[in-house]
Write a protein that binds this DNA or RNA. Structure first.
Lengths: 190, 190
DNA sequence: CGAAAATTTGACATGACTCAACTGGAGTGG
DNA sequence: CCACTCCAGTTGAGTCATGTCAAATTTTCG
């Protein structure tokens, strides 16, 4: 159940038996169904979620009432609203399962306990964040320099398997254009 | 010279004399003039930069040859291209001083040495990244939901002092619109 | 002071959005 | 297992926010 996470951690730091045990004590395993929300706007985000299996996303609801996906997470990624988590303030985001998913959640206080007992994990989480932040920097670069069509073509050639797994309208909002426009790009009518 | 950094670190973890000494041994202090580049596209980013005094930015040059600012950093912020730094791959970004600035640089290998000797700093850098990543999540939210005019008004009421310090064309590119359009927003012609 | 850089302005162009109508497929319940 | 609904995707027409370009003006700074 926890092996996906321990395997992932092992790529960055090595834990002994005792440490692995302490880790487990501070985690919660959960299964969520497609469309289920792990966080809703207005709530404070008390968890970081590791995706063992499945696909989840962060999204917001804009003033027109439309959902806009701001981030996807698949196997071996962490999802959270880090600002809400960090400051204990209400979030503006939703976190939702796109597919039926298996997750490992770590609660903020449990995380502090864990990190106090297994300081090595500070390194693991630092490296995870470094990678995530790097990805976010690149994403902003693409949002700034590419047209809607370029973003679609670039994304779908880079992650063809991924594109299969999400509805078009979610991908459209992640790439920051309308579902209708996506449809026209795909039909070559643009 | 290093006190701005040690003060900043002290907000997150406490270091003793020896640890502070090891920290200093692994840092480089540098002064840069306005417009000087710390990193250029094509180079690998080997450093993370802490801003003691001044103002710097990350930017890219798009296919039309225009600079687009992707990130600003002021006093007590770290700047880097984390993906390039993490993977030792060439960067697509420039890092440049917007004002004459005083920086503290940490080189990647020195950082590894330092972290091996002073593991407490893993926590410091994790928290710094958590905050930066959270800020980046919020920024994407605003880029997605607000119009150009709303982004300008929101940013300039949130950070009025900051707006004073950067040329309009840089802020326009950071908020993802043209300098001409910024001019029209300011003149109320839109 | 003079040159270069930044900002402003106006005319015009366009990429992408909105809205509304239509099509097709996936579930669901009788 | 059919019929019905509902949600996702498609299409076209019209519109608009923002971009582009070029010229004029102002500011900065060596």
């Amino acid at each position: 159940m926890y092996s996906a996470l321990t395997t992932h951690i092992a790529k960055f730091v090595s834990l002994d038996e005792t440490e692995t045990e302490i880790l487990r004590e501070n985690l919660v395993f959960l299964s969520v169904k497609k469309k289920e929300n792990l966080l809703e706007a207005g709530q404070t985000c008390h968890y970081q979620y590791f995706i063992v299996k499945g696909l989840c996303r962060n999204f917001i609801i804009n003033e027109k009432g439309n959902e806009q996906t701001t981030q996807f997470g698949i196997e071996n990624w962490w999802l959270s609203d880090y600002l809400s988590f960090h400051n204990d303030r209400p979030s503006g985001f939703y976190i939702q399962a796109v597919e039926n998913s298996e997750l490992i959640a770590i609660e903020k206080k449990a995380m502090e306990t864990l990190l106090a007992k297994v300081p090595k994990l500070e390194r693991y989480f630092r490296l995870v964040l470094q990678k995530a932040f790097g990805a976010s920097q690149i994403r902003i670069k693409y949002l700034f320099t590419q047209s809607a069509e370029e973003r679609y073509r670039h994304f779908s050639t880079s992650f063809p398997e991924f594109v299969q797994r999400v509805p078009q309208y979610m991908l459209a909002s992640y790439l920051d254009f309308s579902p209708e426009f996506m449809s026209k790009i795909r039909a070559g009518k643009v």
